[in-house]
């Protein structure tokens, strides 16, 4: 990877030697989080409070899912982490360095896809990548062509590399944006809804790409609404709603928080519902031949025995594990409307 030495004085990118030493230390100290924010707040100029007192911790080596309904402040958070906008208050550290002050030292180690790809329509896919690579002062021009070719290959765009970007489909643009994030080996990859516009095959490729990168030690910070996507690849997740962080932690713990549901399949649903209520099952719902409810604290074998004793013919008796979606809905509410 390239060097990080800075050049002309920059207001945003002003950086001192102490800062540079810190970057080295952060690398050595495995325990330091890759992203850490303290009371991070952003109020846009229009007065909109988009992010409100965010304390986010992304452990090194994790695949971190960043969840939240539309308008909950995910992109705003990412913009602050990337030094594109100044926080109203609070601090953000990326790779152990303060942002936006240390953009120049930090960002060469970060690949990002923010709010979808943005391309020069009049340039070919390859020339787009060459342009973005030239913008990085730490990127070696001698290896540029090879790195661009490798990135194109990685996202499956080699065949379309010579085509003008304006002739790309949405999914191809998304892939090219992803390729730009992969021009160099990165320590952190920030992907804001990376599977937007991709076909199922493309989504699977992204998932396997994310896993592959993660196994190489890259920390991946992934924002998405697609919960099963998060559930499939992420080790950790955080949930935002209306600018606030609702919860964060390992994915297993999050979905464990929402309890599973007991599902009984039977041709005698009415009788089954009565017995289940007797046995202490809460929130019993009957739908055709399925009776569901919140499992009681007692041994479920006894519940099943009680059903059989009461003459209920049981076809199926299972506890459905709560999905991340259940957890998400439980945390952010069912309402579809975007908070203003």
């Amino acid at each position: 990877m390239g060097e990080v030495s800075a050049g002309e004085p920059e207001r945003r990118e002003a950086r001192d030697e102490a800062g540079e030493r810190e970057l080295g230390e952060a690398r050595d100290e495995a325990g330091e989080p890759v992203i850490a924010t303290r009371a991070l707040t952003k109020r846009y100029r229009g007065g909109q409070l988009a992010v409100d007192g965010l304390d986010l911790t992304v452990p090194a080596g994790s695949v971190f899912g960043f969840l939240g309904p539309n308008g909950s402040g995910k992109t705003t958070t990412i913009r602050m982490l990337m030094g594109l906008i100044e926080p109203t208050s609070g601090t953000a550290r990326v790779l152990g360095q303060p942002m936006p002050r240390a953009t120049r030292a930090v960002l060469p180690h970060v690949g990002a896809l923010i709010e979808g790809p943005a391309l020069y329509g009049f340039l070919s896919g390859r020339d787009n990548l060459i342009r973005y690579d030239s913008a990085d002062p730490s990127a070696d021009p001698r290896t540029r062509r090879a790195r661009v070719a490798a990135a194109l290959d990685r996202v499956g765009l080699t065949a379309a590399a010579g085509k003008k970007a304006k002739a790309y489909s949405l999914g191809m643009k998304q892939r090219l944006g992803l390729a730009a994030a992969l021009l160099q080996p990165r320590r952190l990859l920030v992907l804001d809804e990376p599977t937007n516009g991709l076909d199922p095959q493309g989504m699977r490729e992204i998932r396997s790409l994310v896993r592959e990168l993660a196994s190489d030690g890259t920390t991946v910070f992934l924002s998405s609404h697609l919960l099963d996507e998060i559930e499939q690849v992420c080790t950790h997740a955080a949930v935002m709603a209306q600018g606030r962080l609702i919860t964060q932690g390992p994915v297993g713990e999050l979905s464990a928080g929402a309890r599973g549901r007991l599902v009984v399949t039977t041709p005698d649903p009415a009788e089954a519902a009565r017995v289940l209520k007797e046995q202490g099952v809460g929130d019993v719902v009957v739908a055709d031949d399925r009776v569901t409810g919140e499992p009681p604290d007692r041994d479920l074998a006894e519940v099943n025995a009680a059903l059989v004793t009461a003459g209920v013919r049981v076809r199926g008796f299972t506890v459905q594990r709560a999905s991340l979606e259940d957890a998400f809905v439980a945390l952010t509410g069912e309402g579809f409307d975007v908070a203003g």
Partner: peptide, 20 residues
């Protein structure tokens, strides 16, 4: 307008360097 500015800045082109 085209959104490419954010990608130049996260490259990171550096704001002064880009402007110059």
């Amino acid at each position: 307008n085209s959104g490419t500015l954010r990608y130049l800045l996260v490259a990171p082109a550096g704001r002064s360097r880009l402007l110059i």
